[in-house]
């Protein structure tokens, strides 16, 4: 069986919570696991963090590069632009 999981791990804090919620909204297959102080989100093939979804949740402008502040770890190829941060396997 092909294993093409990607993951992103964030600190479990006030700033990261809406990001986690946005990931859950935009990635139907995401599995969210809570460990002490951190949250690890796995999904097959792809995870997208959309700027617009986060902005709707926090009510202000949000730059996907703000992810850096509360990011713990990730796995997958990254594709980032002004509107989204994407993790994926393959090209």
């Amino acid at each position: 069986m092909a294993n093409n999981n990607v993951f992103i791990a964030l600190q479990n804090n006030e700033e990261a919570r809406p990001i986690i919620e946005a990931i859950e909204q935009d990635n139907a297959e995401a599995r969210v696991e809570y460990a002490p102080a951190m949250v690890k989100i796995d999904a097959p093939g792809r995870i997208v963090v959309r700027r617009e979804t986060v902005e709707d949740l926090i009510g202000r402008d949000w730059d996907p590069q703000e992810l850096h502040i509360n990011l713990i770890s990730l796995s997958g190829n990254i594709d980032e632009d002004d509107d989204a941060f994407v993790l994926h396997r393959g090209d």
């Binding site: 600190q11 102080a37 951190m38 850096h68 502040i69 509360n70 990011l71 713990i72 770890s73 990730l74 796995s75 990254i78």
Partner: peptide
């Protein structure tokens, strides 16, 4: 975790 947030960039 502060170090690890840099680490994500290093891993990349």
């Amino acid at each position: 975790f502060s170090a690890q947030s840099d680490e994500s960039r290093h891993m990349t």
